[in-house]
Every structure is written in C-alpha cells, then in structure tokens.
C-alpha cells in the first residue's frame, strides 16, 4: 500500500513538471505588465524611435534557439518581417514546442551594430543551427540589428 502511494505521488509530481503543457497559457520570466501591444511593423518602420523603450509585442513564434531556448523569433503583422526576442541564458528557457504558438512578449527594444566579422559569425551560427548552407560573401559589410531584450512573456 505504501509503495503504491509512493508511486502515485511520483507520478503526480512528474505530471506537475509538465503542468505548463496542460495550462492555457505559460508565463516566462516576469511575464507581461499591461494589455497594450505595439505591432512589430510599427517598431521596424521607425526603429530608432523605439530604442531603449520597454514595449510589448504580440505574435506567433516562428523560430526558437535550438540549444538553449534563449531566443525566439516573432512573426510580424506584415510578411517577411520577424523580431528576435532575446533573453539572458538560463533566466528564461523557451521549450522547442513554443514554435508556432502565439504569445505576448515584453522587453526593451535595442539596437546593435555588428561589424562584418560579427555579422558573419552570427549568420554562420544561425546556419549551423538550422542545417542551412552559409556563404560568408553574402555579408558585405557591418549590420545594424534590432531586437527585443526580453524580461518576460506569456505564451498560449
């Protein structure tokens, strides 16, 4: 009887670890603080106006960091646009099945200037992760990079 109780407890505890999957929404990090969101297309239309500001965006996750779960790409309201939502390694870990889910993401919109070498390294890393071909000659110069440095998210 005791053994049965122990096994039942372990099964229930294990189910608790997967609880996020059964819930309608999963909160990551500090979650989000507010209802209003800014369309990604608005942010990217005049990005420098938004640098340093805390914003919330809503969108479907189109990609996720495959090793550490430390970033997701969020689909814009317009085609051919995505915004990277980057979190500190380990503070938030996005699961691989977050891809395809819709969420609200909150963070500080920032601008990064990458030298050509940095841009090549970033593109090479991305290509390796996705098993894609990479040609460094496609990157011809320094790049400006905007991303949301995330503090929290709520995903369906």
């Amino acid at each position: 009887m005791r053994l049965r109780t122990l096994i039942l407890s372990l099964v229930l505890a294990s189910a608790g670890l997967h609880g996020g999957a059964a819930l309608a929404e999963t909160t990551y990090g500090q979650g989000v603080h507010g209802e209003d969101t800014t369309p990604i297309s608005v942010l990217l239309a005049n990005p420098d106006q938004w640098v340093g500001k805390t914003v919330r965006v809503k969108g479907r996750v189109t990609d996720v960091c495959q090793k550490r779960g430390c970033w997701v790409a969020i689909a814009s309201d317009q085609e051919f646009q995505t915004l990277r939502f980057k979190v500190k390694d380990g503070e938030i870990v996005f699961p691989q099945d977050v891809k395809g889910r819709v969420g609200v993401f909150e963070g500080v919109f920032n601008r990064y200037e990458l030298s050509r070498e940095q841009a090549i390294a970033r593109a090479k890393h991305h290509a390796e992760e996705h098993g894609e071909k990479f040609d460094p000659s496609e990157i011809t110069g320094p790049e400006v990079w905007y991303q949301l440095d995330g503090t929290g998210a709520v995903v369906e």
């Binding site: 479907r60 189109t62 790409a73 689909a75 085609e79 051919f80 995505t82 099945d97 891809k99 395809g100």
Partner: peptide, 16 residues
C-alpha cells in the same frame, strides 16, 4: 507565415 518571399512556414499543434 512567410519569413521571405520563397519561404513558407506552416504551423500545426506541436509540429511545423
């Protein structure tokens, strides 16, 4: 979603 003109992503529950 189309991240680029020639690329199309199709999303399903837990696969894509």
């Amino acid at each position: 979603f189309r991240p680029a003109p020639e690329r199309v992503q199709l999303f399903y529950d837990d696969w894509n």
